[in-house]
Amino acid sequence: MGRIWKFGDDVNTDVIIPARYNITIDPQELAKYVFCEDRPDLPKEAQQGDILIAGENFGCGSSREHAPIAIKAAGITAVVAKSYARIFHRNAMNIGLAVLETDEDLDVFSDGDNAEVDLSTGVLRSTTGNAHIQTKPLPQVMIQLIEAGGLASFVRDHDIEELVT
C-alpha cells in the first residue's frame, strides 16, 4: 500500500529524469532526481509501495532506461496508465517494473490518495475512498520478467526464446 502520485498525458522521459542527471547508473542516485523539476516533492517523499497514475502515452521520448530505473528505485511499485510509449514500456518490463494499462476512468483517484494494487488480479483500489478499477491482465512476458527480476536475470538462466511473447 502507498500513496498515489498522479500525472497527466504525454509525460516524457525528460520530465521523468532530465538528461543532465543521467550521468550515473546507480539507482538510488537516479531516484533522487526522478521528476525533480516537475514534481520536486516526489523524490523527497515517495515511499516503497507508492503507485504512479498517468494518462496516455506515458514515457514518450528518449530510450533512456534511467527513467524506469529512477521510478522503481524511488519506491514506486507499479505504474498504472491509459497507455505507454513503446520503448518505455519495454524498458520497464526489462528491469522488472510493473506497468499496467487500463481503459477505465482514472479520475476516480486523486493525487495523495492511499491505494493498493494487486498484481495477480490487476485491481487498483483506493484505501482513502471506495474507488477501484480493473487493469488489463499483465502479458505473460511481463509476468516472466517481473518474476525473474528483469531480462538480464532471465537470460542468465534461460534461452531468450523461452520468453512467452
Partner: peptide
Amino acid sequence: VGFGSTEIGV
C-alpha cells in the same frame, strides 16, 4: 529501432 540499454546488453 530504439531500445533500452538492458535489452541491448542482453
